[in-house]
Write a protein that binds this DNA or RNA. Structure first.
Lengths: 335, 335
DNA sequence: AACCATGTTGGAATCGATTCCAGTCAATGG
DNA sequence: CCATTGACTGGAATCGATTCCAACATGGTT
């Protein structure tokens, strides 16, 4: 009916609309969009005015189709509800923002299947890069199909040959346990997250090594994800002649649970039971007693991961690296 | 040189490649991708096999260009480092995930200019919807150019006529202050975040109203964003004959600062100074004393915001709503 | 035998920005 | 006055998936 039809709906204006209204060719408009090189001041001004008037925004899809970068990176974490990962996300976000890049956030809930779907969704969206805190079961196949750089954060994907940024989990757990041993604790329980995770594994392992080397009894570590299971684990070890006198918690949320549980039980810290945790948290120093921890440099880890990702995006040939950041023993009042 | 040239690089395979190798037309491949309706079982199988073999992934950009939804929503918050917003992000994420949608995360740092750029970036990426916790200075113009539904979270954009989900800030602050008054506190200081924010404003306002109605002195509220400024504010009011006997903190981070500061000063809570905070936080109940608060139903707010957004995305004509969720007084030991 | 409904297929046109490749035009130099 | 440069400009071809429409085969009906 209308041969020079404006689009059927009132959808966003396109480059062609700008060109038509400004009375110039499509190429000229494109040149204006991309800096205005080789365009006379007069046309430049006119085209800019039309763009402004129409509220023209170039279509990302069309640009991407022509091979332009999406200026978007993916970030896959187990959950942003965990302060560890939300701090990391904030830091990564910050770096991305400095590069004019947006972050596509996905949470895997530590579910390898969900993770796989999310990677696939990110591939389709043609992100320029990906930072991932892999689930326990991530296989190298997960990243087989990606055509962009991938950096692992906090945990590796075994045998995938990817750049990985993580904390010194073994070293940190060793230092923590050694400290408990030095302070004279004899029956030390290790409580923490799911052992399938490489981070937890390393921490459990270090704890076991130190305890056994010191000639102390090794109490099988307890994998407790939530409050209830942590509670029942504690209850099992807190009475009777076999009772423990210290706890090494491998996870920040668990540390808080343990603090609450001991308080409720009326157990004195560090008098009856000493406590040290892996990972610092906001209120660790205002609790009573304040909680000793080994602190991961979360922000530094995340920033580093993001920076390396951007390096690899700029230079896809750059070699993969394995980066382990040191952990810091923060002694406070709980042991 | 090579008329049926494969693309210049080894880029991802396209639909045309699948069609060529499978010996079918482009339309047929498209049908296979979209469910295989009206395709014979034999061709279906063959095409699927080729897709599998090539590791074919449809190009999101091309689909978007043809007007398909991006299955992506935007989320703009001041920062994900704040536990309030990271909890909200987690809840929104969760709802999005159920809808098979990814979340593009951007943080505005409460900077209206940055916010504007981010909205623009999201428009270009053609997100299907947007949830935003606007900065103090967000003008209605911010969302003038959007062609997709927008839901405000936690704070409104004045005069923009958008669906808004927020907590009952006035009511919550009223209840909190009333509680302090009921407990017999006479000189109540109100400390909190930047007053340009509608949330802070409402809370200050309610506090002032209640205090004045009770015939108590109204101490000018203190806008303190960080630890240092909070500290100096407290110090100003804690000595001398004009000294305060209670504090209403309008912000969770501030509440923690105040707790630390009072502890350091050796001031007893609630004996010398009573304390109540707006917004619950993780360790509020294990501190000593435990901290009384009014609790915003963060997860419920965020989930609701996300659900409404999806409703509006499905039915763009649906009316805008203004939703205020009730806040809960959680009495603990600090006042 | 002529007819139609149904199922299947190929291929052209389309979405919007980019990128060339020709052109136009004015200015400069010989 | 012609030639050559250089700054501008228009427009066709392109990226990859979708969506039509026309075409054809099959089987069953009259």
């Amino acid at each position: 009916m209308n041969r020079t039809r404006k689009k059927n709906k009132n959808s966003a204006p396109a480059l062609a609309d700008v060109a038509r209204i400004a009375g110039v060719g499509s190429g000229t408009v494109s040149r204006v969009i991309n800096g205005g090189k080789n365009v006379s001041p007069k046309t430049l001004a006119r085209v800019r005015a039309v763009m402004e008037e129409l509220g023209y925004q170039p279509s990302f899809a069309a640009r991407t189709l022509k091979g332009a970068p999406t200026n978007t990176i993916g970030l896959i974490v187990p959950t942003v509800a965990d302060p560890f990962f939300s701090s990391a996300a904030a830091a990564i976000q910050e770096v991305a923002s400095q590069h004019g890049v947006l972050v596509l956030l996905a949470s895997s809930e530590n579910d390898a299947r969900k993770e796989e779907q999310e990677v696939s969704a990110l591939i389709q969206r043609r992100v320029d890069g990906l930072i991932i805190a892999p689930s326990a079961d991530s296989a190298p196949a997960l990243v087989k199909k990606v055509t962009f750089p991938v950096v692992c954060f906090d945990r590796p994907i075994r045998h995938a040959g990817l750049t990985t940024v993580m904390a010194d989990n073994y070293g940190g757990a060793r230092v923590a346990t050694e400290h408990l041993v030095d302070r004279g604790y004899k029956r030390i329980l290790c409580v923490g997250g799911y052992g399938g995770l490489m981070t937890s594994q390393k921490r459990f392992e270090a704890h076991k090594d130190v305890v056994q080397q010191a000639g102390l009894p090794y109490l099988a570590e307890t994998q407790a994800e939530d409050f209830i299971s942590t509670q029942s684990a504690i209850l099992r070890h807190v009475r009777g002649s076999e009772r423990i006198d210290a706890i090494f918690s491998t996870k920040n949320t668990t540390t808080v649970y343990i603090y609450k549980i001991l308080k409720e039980l009326g157990i004195r810290i560090p008098g009856q039971i000493g406590l040290i945790g892996f990972d610092d948290f906001d209120l660790a120093e205002v609790l009573e007693p304040s909680i000793s921890v080994v602190r991961q440099p979360i922000t530094r880890m995340a920033t580093r991961a993001a920076e390396i990702l951007f390096e690899e995006m700029n230079d896809p040939k750059s070699a993969h690296q394995n980066i382990t950041l040191d952990v810091e023993l923060v002694l406070r009042g709980s042991c």
